[in-house]
Design a protein around this nucleic acid. Structure first.
Length: 958
RNA sequence: GCCGGAGUAGCCAAGCCUGGUCAAAGGCGACAGACUCAAGAUCUGUUCUUGUAGGAGUUCACCGGUUCGAAUCCGGUCUCCGGCACCA
């Protein structure tokens, strides 16, 4: 054999490549099978966790190939977005972390230099993925069909997809709020801070602006809790801040200067017309929205002009800040003198209990303050207190009776309803703001801007949802939990923004070039494009020829070939070829992806297919895989701590990894990466190789033995289980049967003295080909060691074959006898000089036969069985023992299956055990004799022989 | 809170849909033995408790129910994890 796994891998990968096994070409005589894994995003090196799902796909593809299918397994990469831009810029800036990470993964200085350009980085990683990962793992992917979302031809397909969505009236426009720099335009806010200098963790938050009427002015407070309006008792201004008067439609709003600036980005007709000091507003009375009560304006320092509008409504019952500030106002004797306040005003502000929350009293804000021991306003703990009480209120709270028609509603529900009502009546408006300050690279503050013409894909469309959901019922979706849940996910999907502006890689939106199609929306229908992209890759067609009419024709079979040919300059023959390819290969049979795709990629994948393609082109299968995790957390490629793939392949061998992935756990469970475990799989392969070499050396013996039939039967049974499991793509079961069960059977066969070279060769042929999907390199190597013809990858997968219950039962009997003898020895602590095994008296076998016949006709019960037995004189003569046995059998047989028992009738236990007596003696370490309880004059000092029943010989030892 | 998932012997992990052959696969670890100069290599056995005859007892988060029979079905409780969106 090859001296190392590495050598073995190279050798067979070369041979597969030479034989062009990976190529998937249309062949109308063979059934097709097309499968993919959800292509990975190009954001850096991948790690051993990613290979789990990828390897699964290759193994399933190989299984399908060996079971007579024409398999297409294409691969690609997803580079849309700003991942590559971020990476390139971090490299360009020589960030220590990223450079170290790149180098740890084997990137050279020369290469690093090139990666300062985003597109070069994409091409670089495309090469890494293909040549360092997938090919090295022995994937039989059709490399001619590789595609990447940034290829110009891919973009043509994407444009077409959006034209079709538009035809289906699924593209809609409506206002949307996005982060933007006043100078640089749209920016991406994410932790990598590609576009921005500060604030990568900021999120967009939706405030409700509450309007308080006060003479000719409107004081505008921003709140995240519109459901608390029934608890408003006063209004807060920061006395030290200078606010502005802003003309807004027919109203004059009062807000902080910062808020005025932000509002101008989101609302029409805003114009600052004057200023007003906070201090001057203290003591005013204003009318609160919804409750239409007049409340006083009090001073408070916690009002931050940079948050919301810088003005706050006061709900002391549920807002810790409000409670503590109100108490300050009430307890501060200087209030009246210092500000323009009256005692009546101060007394009028009494907290109102509005929400009941389990674990809190009438005033949750007060409770949390006391619980946390907060003493003064401005205390930093107030932030936590606020979060806690908001969270508890939102999830568990219910509106109290005082809240008018909203009484009794859950807070979650009341919030939406109350906001909607105030918006409707004009007492409130919406306002979006960032949760923390975000600064653009240019130094300007990033703000939320209203975008009027944002495009969405309307996944809320009822007809589309229904069609998609209905189709899912006919799909093979694994695991079954997702099959059940996917309908809910589809239902839950609403409109989804499908394009964005700013610094992103991707396809320009065909209806408006200012927009780029975003990352989820351009990776939904793409499996289809794998069928076509080969012709662009090999330059048979150019991107500019890939027009709407082209795709309409080859995918949807629209238009006449002559006309399309004339319009595109593509020959009629080629058009016809591509059209037939699509018809042949599509639909996709299996799409496998990580669990993160369950609520994002898979639904949109399904929706877009359903939106654009006819019934017979909708996907047939989805399989979800869980992760390989690091200690306690997901292995993250950005953290760099994860095992690089080439290193792992070198250390363990690719097949060990493939076997590890396939067997370590069900696909639907996270697995913690553990090198010792991987190593144990490698040892398993080592053992299998050693055993095969040993078996292969048995060539000259034609001796048959009792275990031949057993081995043949066992292997047939294993193959049956494998084929059954693979209907659900259950590779774990395949691995279990092949690498463990069959291995153990081989061991048993040899141990029992099996040595028939024909039987062995047949078994090896089955065994090695069974391995080919998961450990193809090792399988090829073993195949060639055994001098079987050709390559195992081209061989047909062994058929299922019904087992021979009789043959299998014979060995079970022997194992049971050995195990029973050992156990008796252990329990009695006897060191036996002599062991006798007594097989059953033959009349008992007759009783069993009668019982089985009765069971077949469904008439088995104790009286009937006893009666029938007693009618046979040869049985009857055994008297009471008959009725006892009948009773026992009738009871036992009603509880368990009778398959094994049936096998007993064909087995001569005495002969069978006698021929194995030597083996049993060897295994138990004592001389074992076999006798039949029927025989006269046998050695039976304790009368044990009477206890024997069919399948359960009696044992005596002394 | 809503939606979804999980809780199995020292550890990992099958089984649960389709109840009985389940003291519960397999692996790892541990222990004992064999082979070896030796071994982290390989092979064999043991690994819930208990027992001088192959048995008995108590288990599959917890409580209760259905059933002749429940790890498996039903109801409830507790704990843990993921998603709740425009982010791939």
């Amino acid at each position: 054999m090859a001296s190392s796994y590495r050598e073995m891998e190279d050798k067979w990968q070369r041979k597969w490549s030479d034989a062009a096994l990976y190529k998937a070409d249309r062949d109308d005589k063979r059934p097709k099978f097309m499968l993919i894994f959800a292509y990975p995003g190009v954001t850096g090196y991948l790690h051993v966790g990613h290979m789990r799902g990828f390897s699964y796909v290759d193994a399933i593809g190989r299984y399908k190939r060996m079971t007579g299918h024409n398999v297409m397994f294409p691969v690609g990469t997803h580079a849309t977005g700003n991942g590559a831009i971020t990476l390139a810029s971090r490299i360009a800036k020589k960030e220590e972390g990223i450079i170290g990470y790149m180098k740890r993964n084997g990137c050279t200085d020369d290469e690093l230099k090139k990666l300062e350009d985003p597109l070069s980085a994409v091409w670089f990683f495309n090469d890494v993925y293909i040549n360092h990962y997938w090919k090295k793992f022995g994937f039989l992917a059709d490399w001619r069909r590789f595609t990447c979302t940034l290829y110009p031809d891919y973009k043509k397909f994407m444009e077409w997809q959006f034209m079709k969505l538009n035809d289906a009236k699924l593209l809609i426009q409506k206002p949307y709020y996005a982060a933007a720099c006043p100078q640089c335009g749209p920016v991406a806010i994410d932790p990598s801070e590609t576009d921005i200098a500060k604030g990568g963790n900021a999120e967009t938050q939706e405030y409700t602006l509450l309007k308080f009427k006060c003479k000719d002015l409107t004081l505008v407070a921003a709140t995240l809790r519109p459901e608390t309006v029934y608890g408003q008792v006063n209004f807060w201004v920061n006395p030290d801040v200078e606010y502005v008067k802003m003309k807004k439609g027919g109203e004059i709003w009062v807000v902080s200067p910062a808020a005025a600036k932000k509002l101008a980005y989101q609302k029409d007709d805003c114009e600052v017309v004057g200023k007003i000091r906070g201090k001057d507003m203290v003591g005013w009375m204003c009318e609160a929205p919804m409750i239409h009560r007049t409340v006083p304006v009090f001073p408070a320092n916690f009002c931050d002009p940079n948050v919301g509008t810088g003005l706050v409504t006061s709900v002391p019952s549920d807002a810790p800040d409000d409670w503590i500030s109100l108490m300050d106002v009430k307890n501060d004797p200087n209030m009246i003198s210092e500000y323009n306040l009256t005692k009546e005003q101060i007394d009028s502000a009494v907290p109102i209990s509005i929400i009941s929350i389990d674990g809190y009293g009438d005033f949750p804000a007060k409770d949390i303050i006391e619980r946390m021991g907060i003493k003064r306003s401005g205390a930093p703990e107030l932030l936590d207190a606020k979060k806690q009480v908001y969270k508890d209120g939102y999830h568990m709270g219910r509106m109290k009776d005082i809240c008018g028609k909203f009484a009794g509603l859950r807070v979650e529900e009341a919030k939406d309803k109350m906001r909607a009502e105030m918006l409707e009546s004009g007492e409130a408006e919406l306002f979006n703001d960032l949760t923390e300050e975000v600064i653009c690279r240019c130094g300007n503050q990033v703000m939320i801007k209203r975008v009027d013409d944002q495009w969405f894909i309307n996944y809320a469309d009822e007809a589309l949802t229904k069609r998609t959901s209905d189709h899912c019922r006919n799909m093979q979706i694994n695991p079954v939990e997702y099959q059940n849940n996917v309908h809910g996910v589809l239902e839950w999907f609403r409109e989804r923004a499908c394009v964005r502006q700013g610094n992103w890689l991707g396809t320009k939106f065909p209806f408006d070039e200012r927009w780029t199609i975003e990352a989820i929306s351009d990776s939904t229908l793409y499996p289809l494009y794998y069928v076509i992209c080969m012709y662009a890759n090999n330059k048979e067609i150019e991107p500019e020829q890939m027009t709407e009419a082209f795709f309409d024709h080859v995918v949807l079979q629209k238009g006449k070939a002559d006309e399309v040919s004339k319009a595109t300059g593509i020959s009629k023959e080629l058009l016809e070829k591509i059209r037939k390819d699509v018809q042949y290969w599509y639909p996709l049979d299996l799409n496998l992806g990580g669990k993160e795709h369950m609520t994002v990629h898979f639904p949109t994948f399904l929706f877009n297919h359903a939106a654009i393609l006819p019934d017979d082109k909708l996907p047939r299968g989805i399989t979800v895989n869980w992760y390989i995790t690091g200690k306690k957390s997901k292995i993250s490629k950005s953290k760099g701590g994860a095992q690089p793939i080439p290193g792992a392949a070198e250390m363990f061998g690719v097949d060990s990894l493939r076997l590890y992935y396939a067997h370590v756990a069900s696909l639907f469970a996270d697995v913690e990466w553990d090198e010792d475990i991987v190593m144990s799989y490698r040892q398993r392969l080592d053992k299998i190789i050693t055993m095969t070499e040993e078996l292969n050396s048995i060539t000259d013996l034609e001796k048959s033995s009792d275990v031949d039939g057993w081995l043949i039967s066992r292997f047939g049974t294993h193959m049956s289980i494998i084929h059954e499991s693979m209907k659900k793509f259950d590779l774990r079961s395949l691995a279990s049967e092949t690498y463990f069960e069959m291995f153990n059977d081989m061991k048993w066969y040899l141990r029992r003295g099996g040595c028939n070279s024909e039987v062995i060769r047949n078994a090896l042929k089955i065994w090695i080909s069974a391995m080919a999907p998961i450990t193809p390199h090792v399988a090829e190597e073993l195949w060639s060691i055994c001098k079987f013809k050709g390559m195992v990858s081209e061989y047909e997968y062994p058929d299922a074959c019904p087992g021979n219950a009789g043959a299998e039962f014979g060995e079970t009997l022997i194992r049971d006898v050995i195990s029973d003898i050992s156990q008796i020895i252990k329990v009695t602590k006897i060191n036996p000089k002599r062991v006798v095994v007594y097989t059953t008296q033959s009349w008992k076998t007759k009783v069993l036969e009668i019982a089985l016949n009765l069971a077949d006709s469904g008439k088995l019960d104790i009286p009937t069985l006893t009666k029938m037995c007693m009618s046979d004189p040869s049985i009857r003569e055994h008297g009471k023992a008959v009725s006892e046995l009948a009773k026992k059998l009738a009871v036992d047989m009603s509880r368990t299956s009778n398959e094994g028992r049936r096998a007993l009738l064909q087995l001569n236990e005495k002969e069978h055990l006698s021929s194995a007596a030597e083996f049993i003696s060897f295994e138990t370490g004592t001389k074992v004799e076999v006798m039949s309880a029927d025989d006269q004059g046998i050695y039976d000092p304790q009368g044990k022989s009477k206890a024997a029943i069919p399948g359960r010989p009696a044992i005596y030892l002394e």
